[in-house]
Amino acid sequence: MTTPVEPPVPPAKPAPLRPGRKLGPIADGVGSVHRAWLEPLRYTYLKSGLTLSDLGARVPLAKSKLSELLRGTGLYPRWEIILSLSLQLQMPGWPLYRLWRQAAFEAQKSSDWIERSGDKASVTTSQTPPLDHRAFREIVESDYRLYAQVFLDDEGRDTAVANTFDILWLRWNEALASPDIRRFAWDTLRATVMARTPHIDGRPEFEAAAFDTVALRYLPTDAERMNQVEETFQLFKAMSRLPDQQLDIMVLSWLYGIDSEGVSALLGVPLATVRSGERHAMYFLESVICPPPETEGNTA
Rank of each mutant, 00 (worst) to 15 (best):
Q228T: 09
T273Y: 06
F136L: 15
T197K: 05
G49D: 03
M91F: 03
E207K: 13
V5L: 13
A121I: 01
Y283C: 04
N227T: 14
V150S: 07
A223C: 00
N227Y: 08
A104V: 04
A175D: 03
A12D: 13
P198D: 06
A185N: 05
Y147W: 13
E286H: 14
A265S: 15
G24P: 10
R182C: 13
A27V: 11
A177Y: 04
A104W: 01
Y76Q: 07
P198T: 03
S240V: 08
V30R: 09
I81Q: 03
S178V: 08
T128Y: 06
I139D: 05
P291M: 13
G118T: 02
D153G: 15
Y45N: 03
P270C: 07
R171M: 14
A57M: 11
L131T: 14
Q246M: 12
P10W: 04
V33H: 02
R157Y: 04
A265E: 04
V193W: 01
F206K: 08
A103V: 00
F236Q: 09
E286V: 07
L55P: 08
T3G: 12
V193Q: 05
L168F: 01
K109W: 13
P60F: 03
V288S: 10
L70R: 08
T51A: 06
D28R: 15
L61G: 05
L152T: 00
T213W: 03
L247V: 05
V30G: 08
W94Y: 13
P60M: 05
I26C: 11
I114Y: 00
A175F: 09
